[in-house]
Amino acid sequence: MREEELSYKGIHGIPVILEPGNAARVDRSSWRLVRPVYNKDKCTMCKICYTYCPDSAIAWTKEGPVINLTSCKGCMICVEECPTNAMTQEKESS
């Protein structure tokens, strides 16, 4: 495109994401080599996994953590930090 054909878009030409929270919808499942697996029997409901997840891919419910495997990129921080080994890792099959 010739330079004179470019048009200035003002605020719409600035790299700003105006809609908050849309990162939660990005599918990162293909990034994972391993996935976290939750074992309810060992869980003390301490919320450390929920607190430490850098992508907020773990939600907290009355029943304990719920992992969103679309958001989880497989960093395994939850597995590393869980004091009772209620979070373990499993290889992704493909």
Binding site: L6, S7, Y8, K9, I11, G13, I14, P15, V16, L18
Partner: peptide, 30 residues
Amino acid sequence: QHTITSDRPVTVGPPVMDEYTDYKAQMHLA
């Protein structure tokens, strides 16, 4: 024109792929 405030959270300067040239072109025009 564009701000981060608690009642209107936005992301500034996010990672992009295809749009990188477009943003640089906009900077150039600006």
